[in-house]
Simulated scan of single mutants.
Amino acid sequence: MREKNIEQKLVLMTKDLGGLALKLVSPGFDGMPDRLILLPERKIAFWTSVNRLDSQNRENYAI
């Protein structure tokens, strides 16, 4: 499955929960997650980055 399709599914699932999946750009910060997920009334917000399962992650994405 392509990364684009995974991100679209994430956005749709977040909207179904009444939340927002905002795409953000952080120039100069390699490895920074590019989605901010906000869910209503649950007071939950978190950063995420979506990659294909078979993709090779670069060193700056390692935890």
Rank of each mutant, 00 (worst) to 15 (best):
F46T: 03
K9M: 15
E41R: 11
G28M: 00
N57M: 11
E3N: 01
N51A: 14
F46Q: 03
Q56K: 13
K43Q: 11
E59N: 15
I37D: 03
D54R: 12
F46V: 08
T48R: 06
I6G: 02
Q56V: 11
T48D: 07
I44A: 10
E59T: 11
M32Q: 01
P40Y: 03
V25L: 12
Q56R: 09
F29P: 00
A21D: 00
Q56D: 09
I6Q: 04
L36H: 02
I63E: 01
P27R: 09
S26N: 13
I37Y: 06
M32T: 00
K15I: 08
L12R: 09
G18L: 02
M13F: 07
I37K: 04
N51S: 14
M1N: 01
G18E: 04
N57S: 05
P27F: 08
R2Q: 12
T14Q: 05
L53Q: 15
T48S: 12
D34W: 02
V25K: 13
T14W: 03
I37H: 07
V11L: 06
S55I: 10
R35K: 13
Y61I: 02
N51H: 15
E41Q: 11
W47H: 07
I44T: 13
W47L: 10
D34R: 08
R35Q: 09
E3T: 06
D54Q: 09
L20V: 04
T48I: 12
S26R: 12
M1L: 04
A21P: 00
R58C: 12
V11Q: 08
V11H: 03
A62Q: 07
A62C: 05
I44H: 08
L53V: 09
G18Y: 02
E59M: 12
L12S: 11
G19H: 04
G31W: 01
L17H: 10
S49W: 01
I63P: 04
L24P: 00
L17Y: 10
K23R: 11
V50I: 11
M32G: 00
M32I: 01
N57H: 03
T48L: 09
M13Q: 14
A21C: 10
N60V: 11
G19K: 05
I6P: 01
L12W: 08
E59I: 10
G31H: 00
N51E: 13
L38T: 07
L38F: 13
P27Y: 12
Y61V: 02
L24N: 07
R52K: 12
W47F: 13
G18K: 04
A45W: 13
K23V: 08
G19V: 09
E59R: 12
T14H: 05
P40Q: 06
K15L: 06
S55G: 09
W47Y: 13
G19T: 08
D54F: 04
